[in-house]
């Protein structure tokens, strides 16, 4: 197996499927609803969380033996907030365009319950390397769902992917592609409730394929 032992590999692969933070643990739903109307936004958010959760897990893990248990939640909050602010400031100074694209996500990262959840459940009790893997794995599991939801919402809601029109031109009078046959974009896909329904469908498919996941 080389670099990763079997146990370590599981840390990454588990959250991608059978222990997915969104579909199984039902964490991080708020941001999954808010920002998945566009595929690009989903991808940007997935990368941001990957970054913050990977580093944050390591920091908390390194501090785990000196953090007083009475104030550990506050300490976690401070770590995540400080990380996010520093990243935001550095981006604003050296990658201004990128920081404008990220704008709203930066704030949303702090509120993402997956991050606090992993700090509390994993990083406080495990070493830095394993915590890092766990962070990457969970962020990737979160990102995968985000990208799937973003893909369907943008495709069916706006008829575009990453901003490029893929289903033709919807403007009345000059329709091309699918629109020429009377197809119309479903504006409802752009609203938050549809994100929840798409996630529901993913959960349904996942549990019907793996019966062990069904709770009584």
């Amino acid at each position: 197996m080389g670099l990763l032992s079997k146990k370590d590999t599981k840390l990454i692969t588990d959250p991608l499927a059978d222990n997915n933070p969104i579909t199984i643990q039902v964490l991080g739903i708020c941001s999954a609803l808010a920002i998945t109307a566009e595929l690009k936004a989903s991808i940007v958010m997935a990368i941001s969380v990957l970054f913050v959760l990977g580093i944050g897990n390591v920091v908390i893990s390194l501090l785990r033996n000196i953090i007083p248990s009475k104030i550990r939640i506050i300490v976690q909050l401070v770590v995540v907030a400080a990380l996010v602010i520093i990243v935001d400031q550095v981006l604003k100074a050296f990658a201004y365009e990128l920081s404008k694209t990220l704008s709203v996500f930066v704030g949303l990262i702090i509120t993402n319950c997956i991050i606090m959840g992993r700090f509390e459940a994993f990083a406080l009790g495990n070493g830095p390397w394993r915590s890092f893997l766990d962070g990457i794995g969970n962020a990737a599991g979160y990102g995968v769902i985000l990208v799937i939801v973003g893909f369907f919402r943008e495709l069916l809601g706006s008829g575009t992917l990453l901003g490029f029109p893929v289903l033709g031109n919807p403007i009345p009078g000059e329709q091309t592609g699918l629109y020429a046959f009377g197809y119309e974009n479903n504006g409802f896909m752009l609203l938050s409730p549809m994100a929840l329904i798409v996630i529901g469908i993913i959960i349904w498919i996942q549990r019907s394929r793996n019966k062990d996941l069904i709770e009584d």
């Binding site: 808010a34 920002i35 109307a37 566009e38 690009k40 936004a41 704008s103 709203v104 704030g107 919402r153 943008e154 809601g157 706006s158 752009l190």
Partner: peptide, 10 residues
């Protein structure tokens, strides 16, 4: 805008 919803107000 500072923080409108991506895909909608943005």
């Amino acid at each position: 805008h500072l923080g409108e919803t991506p895909g909608l107000g943005a």
